[in-house]
């Protein structure tokens, strides 16, 4: 049975990448938006641009993984094509993992472009192994967060609206552009329950920018977030077919 599930996951990812992710709307959300956002901050403070790189990578992970979740889940639910997948010899969690993994693969492609591009241009040398330890679980966390929010609602536009809430909340409160240490105490504590904070902390660590936590600690927290989003997403999707 696990072979059936793995095979289905593989082909769902390939199909989703081909039909949804490698299309202009996803690419613009996944890559153009984080770059435009970062450039806006660069023009304001050109001197501190290097410090923005972990935030830029974190934003790319966040936006690219969630760029097409509403389409791959809500649109397919509406058309019945997600149900079509469940008619194949595969279980529901494998279908959802396939949907999440599509976001992960696309996010990884976008993140590699941004990371390699920015480090080469700026001549900075992060710890690539540490980057890997943070980027991979982060991709899973935000793709599964996107999946969870999408299965909560019915329509594509509802999902897009709902996704924007954590996206923008996390940009401002997770240390992407404003240091968490400069925030009021209440917001500082709040920021630690946001997964993007742990991505940014881990990335800062990998870039040697200083952080009071370790990469392994952040990675474990991110893994916890992944399960926290994945398990209810599977249960909610299962309920939709009851």
């Amino acid at each position: 049975m696990w072979r059936d599930n793995l095979r289905a996951i593989y082909y769902i990812v390939l199909k989703d990448i081909k039909t949804y992710y490698l299309k202009p709307p996803s690419i613009s959300w996944g890559i153009v938006f984080p770059i435009a956002w970062t450039l806006a901050f660069y023009l304001r403070h050109p001197g501190g641009f290097i410090n923005l790189i972990p935030g830029l990578i974190a934003m790319t992970i966040l936006f690219s993984t969630t760029a097409a979740e509403a389409v791959v889940i809500n649109f397919e639910l509406r058309l019945g094509s997600l149900e079509r997948l469940l008619l194949a010899p595969v279980n529901l969690s494998a279908v959802l993992i396939g949907k999440i993994l599509g976001g992960v693969v696309f996010g990884l492609m976008m993140t590699i472009v941004i990371t390699v591009g920015s480090t080469l241009v700026l001549g900075i040398y992060p710890n690539y192994f540490h980057l890997f330890l943070i980027i991979i679980p982060s991709l899973f966390v935000f793709a599964s967060l996107g999946a969870l929010l999408c299965v909560l609602v019915k329509e594509v536009f509802e999902a897009q609206t709902l996704l924007n809430l954590p996206r923008f909340l996390m940009i401002f409160l997770s240390g992407v552009v404003y240091p968490i240490s400069a925030m009021p105490a209440a917001l500082r504590y709040f920021s630690y329950i946001l997964p993007l904070t742990h991505t940014v902390n881990g990335l800062r660590n990998a870039f040697g920018a200083g952080s009071n936590t370790t990469v392994i600690y952040e990675m474990l927290i991110l893994f916890g977030f992944f399960l926290l989003f994945l398990i209810p997403a599977v249960k909610l999707l299962s309920k939709k077919f009851e």
Binding site: Y11, K15, T19, S81
Partner: peptide, 25 residues
Amino acid sequence: VPEISNLYDELSGLDNLIFMAQLYG
């Protein structure tokens, strides 16, 4: 064959059948 013809709009007829063949092994 569900009541709704729910194959993929974005894929051709041939690609839809090949995708289903992939899913079924």
